[in-house]
Design a binder for these strands. Structure first.
Lengths: 342, 342
DNA sequence: ATTGCTAAGGCAAAGGTTTTCGCAATGCGA
DNA sequence: TCGCATTGCGAAAACCTTTGCCTTAGCAAT
């Protein structure tokens, strides 16, 4: 590597190798019609000079920039992070680079970002947001593919990827039923959250399919907080004292529930089994006992979004709202009672 | 906006406005030598066609791309996120776009990313990581400015921005002393973490300055977990039963401590005051009682990193390890006893 | 009327890379 | 020895924008 003036160009490499720039280009890109000796000389010259091709010039010509934009409407928190990571996984380090744009729910910012991305000729855009929110399409006639992840577009012609919350709720209930629990309550977040409603629906369906109903007879909607988890336990114990399991709408509620159950002398999982939702490690692992919980596989969702975007870039677009599976992570809080008695 | 073939170029705009491309460029960029009438016609033409200048072509010519790279060595978690957000704040939406690169502590990935960033002719690079880790410079003779945030470069010629952990520790202790506490213990994370050692040093200095020493006579190093917080309380109560405050190395330890103190019948803050570190909202706010804690102002740190990078791009580089102030967020867990008795 | 000045806008080059086309040389068969 | 195919490489155009320089026209001053 030589520290000359300014970045070294392919012309510099060509001169050093004693060929024309066009030939150097072919040699470096492995195109045919170049003798082995010439190719080697060019590559060595490039190596010696520390040549790095100018992606701007390359993109100008090819029309592709090998970059994508990632717009997170949420000022990105716990949910968008794994999605971003997954997208990065799919887009692969080195090949495609990701522009991170945090629009913070500000429509104006979003438009600024969109314009900036289009000016930079990104190959595609991923839009992600907090919990499953329906949202307006990011723009019209964009000429480049867009994939929505977590948040989903109100236009069914757009491709949107969201976790299957309903199935996740059913997963939790079936697991509890499978470990012998029969009197199961459900404490979750605010009703205005689609995720809360979907999870509750899945849970109730799974119970109905087993010929059972919800303990306390109805879903307790409240807040996504530990505080509400504690209060939920109190409410449930009043209306259904024989309770042997609680499915909570997220991990924070579940952790509050665990604390409260311990305080009132109910053992988890011996007396009451507990299942949360989100698999938020810092909560689920720190909970006493560690929490069984539903994982939305957000990272895989992000990865899927990246893969779908690449497919769309290559001319294979998708469309519609697609549900991705949740999975259950079993920990101590739902261990069946049998296995505890020696 | 017309949906023709391919993106509309300035030539299209010029043709519609009846001028040459060069003139159109000048009109759109507000350069002098263009009559008001022509400028208006060009702008209207651009508007009608939905013209978006090609940043690749512009960057090719100007040598600046108005993009920066952000390499997070940490698979980016709680610490890098606010830094990223702050950097975004500083770089401003629309003007400068950020390439997000997650190297995951993999040197090879990092090199791939670095190469990809250089090929795309980013104007600068911010390197951030998890807790304050000393690290190798990302590369040599890079020709573009680099700013390190959180993680810091082993080369003192590089500019590195890190939170002032030592001052943060002192802040916590001085606050506790100010509310009348005198017998203060310290439970923190593993000794191999520079942050743990620095915070402990700051704490001890503040105590020494007040003519006091640490309750239990030494810092308890352990893990960054709630579990360790609970055990730390047990250890402290054994060695210093008259304890009236605990400063914890992070919020998780503090939360464990709060739980344990409640379990053994010590009231927080009436009997024992508690101060954490990190101001991690999900922990600090959910703690019972809500946690007084030291905030590293990571977002401002990220913002500072962005601003310093811009300054460096503009020819005003900095260097050395620079400490940024922490601040104290006072909540219930350290309320002075006086104010509780009516 | 000629000169000189300014304003407005056109022309062309530059920036780095890729690609197409064409040219020259080589080798082979006739 | 000639013709032809093949191989290797160079020249130049193209991608899009910006900018310095040049031309032209209009106008004022001499």
């Amino acid at each position: 590597m030589v520290t000359g003036q300014g970045p070294v160009t392919i012309t510099d490499v060509a001169r050093l190798a004693g060929v024309s720039p066009g030939t150097a280009s072919k040699a470096l890109n492995g195109r045919r019609g170049i003798s082995a000796g010439t190719a080697l000389r060019v590559q060595q010259a490039a190596e010696r000079l520390g040549y790095q091709p100018n992606a701007l010039a390359r993109g100008l010509l090819s029309g592709r920039s090998f970059t994508v934009g990632l717009i997170t409407t949420d000022s990105f928190g716990r949910f968008s992070i794994p999605v971003v990571q997954g997208a990065e996984d799919a887009l692969g380090p080195g090949r495609i680079l990701v522009f991170l744009c945090e629009s913070r729910d500000d429509r104006l910012r979003e438009e600024h970002y969109l314009r900036a991305l289009l000016e930079r000729r990104v190959d595609g855009i991923i839009v992600t947001g907090r919990r499953q929110d329906r949202r307006e399409p990011i723009g019209r006639d964009l000429r480049i593919p867009v994939v929505y992840a977590m948040a989903y577009s109100s236009d069914p012609a757009d491709l949107s990827l969201v976790p299957d919350d309903e199935e996740g709720g059913a997963l939790a209930i079936r697991h509890l039923l499978g470990t012998g629990r029969t009197t199961i309550g459900h404490v979750t977040g605010p009703r205005r959250f689609r995720a809360a409603v979907l999870r509750a629906a899945g849970a109730e369906q799974a119970l109905t399919a087993a010929g059972l109903g919800l303990a306390g007879s109805r879903t307790l909607y409240g807040e996504w907080t530990e505080e509400w988890g504690r209060r939920g336990v109190d409410l449930l114990l009043r209306s259904a004292p024989g309770l042997d399991a609680i499915f909570c709408g997220n991990d924070q509620i579940a952790r509050g529930a665990a604390d409260r159950l311990r305080e009132v002398g109910r053992r988890v999982p011996a007396d009451v089994a507990l299942v949360g939702f989100d698999n938020w490690d810092v909560i689920a692992a720190a909970c006493r006992p560690p929490l069984t919980t539903v994982d939305m596989n957000l990272r895989q969702l992000g990865r899927a979004a990246g893969e779908r975007l690449l497919a769309a870039v290559d001319g294979h677009p998708g469309s519609g709202l697609q549900l991705l599976p949740c999975s259950l992570v079993v920990r101590e809080s739902s261990r069946p009672p049998e296995s505890r008695s020696p």
